[in-house]
Amino acid sequence: MARADLLLDLVQAERHGDRDRFRTLVEAVIAEERANQHHLLADRLSELITTTGQGLTRDDRAAAVRDLVEEIVPQRRLAELELAPVPQRVITELVEEQRRAELLRSYGIEPRNRLLLSGPPGNGKTSVAEAIASELMLPFYVIRYEGVVSSFLGETAARLDSAFEFARTRRCVLFFDELDTIAKERADEHETGEIKRVVSTLLLQIDRLPAHVVLVGATNHSELLDRAAWRRFQVRAELEAPSRSQATHYLERLADRFGGDLGFAPRTLADKLAGASFAELEEFALDVRRRAVLELPDADVRRIVKERLEHWRSQATE
């Protein structure tokens, strides 16, 4: 069981209403229980502190920046994602560095904390960011573009400052989707001076992030990123559309998740859905399962799959 001093500090933090310290101490208890091979207890504690208050703002101070930053309860785990070997390795290494940050610091080394994900949409960039937060048992914050980007000159940079200032004061994972929308190449003669000032502000804020804040940037168009912004990320991973074998394996897992029957063998479906992203494969399987449930008890899953395949092909050729 957890050390007596940890339990005493835990009770004292609760009595004083110190929620940040209470959470930090619970995370310390979880780490200790994992070290003692008490994984069931550690998993249960982790689940409690990452799901309590789902749908509500769990950080009181987040209320002041709720228009700029949204907190999301992480649900994904890295083991659930289909990743190619290279992205799998670099992402796993970043998670390990954050988990063992104290060991690195004892040697005068800081863990890496800035990850750039690129690739076509629907192939796991948001899921990876969420899974990193889940693995590290950290709050997951997402930059809200509708709140940060303003039509008024000067306001966007100021709002970016506020969002990053909030993130710097806590240990968390901060997700910046569609990074190319703001971090555009400043050498582009068609861009305004305002955009260039925003990029400069963004670069300054990234430089000021402490190592305990994990910044995950995502872009569908890495070629549009300002080169200085691209270089700010110590770790970069390309998330491509699934290969045939990846799609087959993913469809096998989806079949298990959605009831074990997708009408055709996963390999056959992978061939018929060639070119689909991971998100499209999941939506296809979910659509089949939804229709099959509605047609119970006489559902013909094979017929449903054939109909959905025809629809998918027609959309793909539009």
Rank of each mutant, 00 (worst) to 15 (best):
E165P: 00
Q88A: 11
E189G: 10
F140T: 02
V173D: 00
P139C: 10
A187R: 15
G147Y: 02
D161Y: 04
E110T: 11
N123K: 09
A79P: 00
V142H: 06
R159E: 01
E96F: 13
E185W: 13
R105P: 09
L136R: 10
G154D: 12
E71Y: 12
E165L: 03
E70R: 14
I109D: 12
R99Y: 11
A167Y: 00
N123T: 08
I182N: 05
K184A: 07
D67Y: 08
D67A: 14
Y141P: 01
V142M: 11
R99M: 14
V69W: 00
V142T: 13
L116K: 05
K184M: 12
R168Y: 00
L104Q: 11
I72W: 14
E130S: 08
E96L: 15
E71K: 05
T92Q: 13
F166T: 03
F164D: 02
E102F: 14
A163W: 00
E97W: 07
F175Y: 15
F175Q: 07
A133E: 06
H190G: 12
V95R: 06
R114K: 15
R144M: 05
E135G: 05
L78H: 08
A62I: 05
R171H: 09
V142A: 07
L81H: 01
P87R: 04
A163P: 02
V90E: 07
I109A: 13
F152E: 12
A133N: 06
E135V: 04
T169A: 15
R76I: 11
F140C: 03
F176V: 03
Y141K: 05
E178D: 12
A84C: 08
I91V: 15
P120W: 01
T92D: 06
C172P: 01
T126P: 07
L138S: 04
D177T: 04
A133G: 14
G119Q: 06
F164S: 00
V86P: 06
V142D: 06
A167I: 00
V73C: 12
S150I: 07
E71H: 14
G119V: 05
A84W: 03
R114H: 08
V73K: 15
E93I: 11
A183K: 07
A157D: 01
S162R: 09
L136T: 06
Q98N: 13
F164Q: 03
V90H: 10
E191G: 09
E70P: 02
Q75Y: 14
R77G: 09
R114I: 08
A62N: 12
S162M: 07
D188Y: 14
L103I: 12
A187C: 10
A129E: 04
I132L: 06
A129I: 05
G124K: 01
A187W: 13
E93H: 15
A101Y: 03
Q98I: 05
R66Y: 11
Q75I: 04
E165I: 01
P74D: 07
S127C: 10
E71F: 07
L160D: 00
N113Y: 04
Q98R: 13
E93P: 03
S134T: 04
E130M: 12
A101L: 09
R159Q: 07
A167P: 02
A79Q: 14
R114D: 06
P121Q: 08
E96C: 09
D188P: 13
R186G: 10
A158K: 11
E70G: 08
L81S: 01
P121T: 04
E93F: 13
L116F: 03
I132R: 03
S134I: 02
R89Y: 14
V148P: 02
D180H: 08
I132K: 00
R112N: 13
R171D: 05
